[in-house]
């Protein structure tokens, strides 16, 4: 599966369009991580626990998008966009979407 946020795949031509595919996850904070983040709250700087958490969740969302594209028979996803929104205090939604195509 070729992933790109360009409108076409470099060096290849698009033969079929399959339309929009997307994946999303909503994750809440882990209590242990939240506790450590409370300390970091005083010291400032990078909150590693959250960086990891969001990273894992985003990979999960991408995985779901790829699964959807696979089921359509596509071999590439173009024009990928990410979006993050905080739904309530402590939970974030990570959404990724793109266009499934087949290229040759």
């Amino acid at each position: 599966m070729i992933l790109t946020n360009l409108e076409s795949v470099p060096g290849k031509s698009i033969s079929t369009h399959f339309g929009l595919v997307s994946g999303s996850t909503i994750r809440a904070k882990h209590i242990g991580r939240d506790f450590m983040a409370g300390f970091k709250n005083i010291l400032g700087g990078e909150l590693k626990g959250y960086t990891e958490l969001l990273n894992e969740s985003r990979q999960e969302a991408v995985k779901r998008m790829i699964a959807q594209a696979n089921s359509l028979g596509a071999n590439a996803i173009i024009n990928i966009r990410f979006s993050t929104s905080s739904i309530t205090q402590g939970a974030a939604e990570l959404y990724v979407y793109g266009t499934a195509v087949s290229v040759s």
Partner: peptide, 8 residues
């Protein structure tokens, strides 16, 4: 990506 916070 990175998550950063302000200090107190």
């Amino acid at each position: 990506h990175v998550v950063v916070a302000l200090d107190y």
